[in-house]
Computed example of a mutant assay.
Amino acid sequence: MPESRDQVRRRITGDDALLVEHLMDVILAEIPGYQVLDAVQLAEVRAQIRWNVSRVLELWATGTSLTEADANRFRGVGAVRARDGRPLSVILRSYRVAASAFMGYVADRFGEVLTARDMADLTRVWLAADDKLSDALHDGYQAAENSISTDRDRAIGRLVSDLVLGRHAHEGAFVARLRELDVPLPQRFTVVVLQSAAAVDAVLPAVAEPVMHAVIDGTGVVVTGQADLKALHRRGARCCVLADIGANETPRWYRLARACLDRAPADRLVLDRGDAEVLALLAGRADADPERAASTVLAGIASQEHLTETLDALFVAGNAEEVAVRLGVHPQTVRYRLRRITAMTGRDPRRPWDLFVLQCARLATR
């Protein structure tokens, strides 16, 4: 008397350890990503294989279909895999590899007691189950991934707020939170403070990874490894760029940047640390430093006597022709020197605010 499907099912599941290890070996051989899983994760994979085999054989023997409870189980599996960081494509491939290996195993060991119809139905049941469970797995994975992304975005936003508002007990606490969020920000970084919160998305292409951003009291703040000043100019967003600063310095610089954006003329679109330092001097802040303001604004021209004397003459002369008369040089020479000053300081002496900042920096240490 031929064996019933239920009898075959019991024979297969009665010695499922052999089948589970066979499918596990095939998956490990076919999918390198599974070879790096730890012992706990491999035990979870074995348990899932055992459940799949048992459930598919049950459906095949009883002529039933997967339930919503089965789908919910796989939504949960998908969510767990997303939090593990295991790629969805790799997980789905493991089910396809297991399906082929399972059908081969059954055909080799039970081919004599199963009819062609039995094998065809078993294949159909596995594929139908795989299709439904894959959809559920995908849904759970995507939902969890979206949740993780949202949670991470919120955590990064809080980190940026705490950074600029000085809520860290010490720099090590900030570094520890960066590590937890997997943000490889260098020890010295750049903060871009934007006058408009709406401009954050517009300036992101002008900054380098890694990047964090947040909106604080209507102001956009972007923290990055470095920013492209020319690209920021092209983006047209009014901002203050604070380059080469550390976590402990950030609150001070942030306050100065906000003051710069409120008080500096709008004709200077992209402000920087030099503008902030000069503003600190003018406001009489206790932490203002004349030497630091001068070195920040004047950059490389402080040691170029011909450039500094040209700048000093411009403060009282007003235009290139008058400067040329005072210095006894050709007006074209003066224009060339002014272009050099602009290139080296990022400030155009022909613009009132830039000229004012340059003059303040020159006067700061006299």
Rank of each mutant, 00 (worst) to 15 (best):
A214K: 00
G225I: 05
A173G: 10
A243G: 11
L194Y: 12
E209Q: 11
W253A: 01
V207C: 07
A173N: 13
W253P: 01
D151H: 12
N248C: 07
D228V: 10
A202L: 12
V203F: 11
R154I: 11
A202R: 14
R258A: 02
V221K: 01
E180N: 15
V160G: 01
A176P: 07
G225M: 09
A214C: 03
A231N: 05
I156K: 08
I245C: 04
L163W: 06
T219C: 06
A243Q: 08
D201H: 09
I148L: 15
G157L: 03
P205I: 08
A227Y: 01
V175K: 12
K230L: 14
P186I: 01
I156G: 04
C239F: 05
P186W: 03
G236A: 12
A176S: 13
A257T: 01
G246M: 09
D162Y: 12
G225D: 11
E249N: 09
R238Q: 06
V203R: 03
V164K: 01
A214Y: 00
A155C: 12
L204N: 05
T219A: 11
G218N: 04
G166Y: 03
A155G: 07
L163C: 14
A243R: 13
T150F: 14
A257S: 02
P205A: 13
V200Q: 07
G236P: 05
I148D: 12
R263L: 10
A257Q: 00
A247P: 04
L165M: 12
P210D: 08
R234G: 09
V211Y: 05
A264N: 09
R238E: 04
G166N: 06
P184W: 10
D267S: 13
D217L: 00
R252D: 09
P184F: 08
I245Q: 03
S147K: 08
C260K: 08
A206E: 04
A266N: 11
A214F: 00
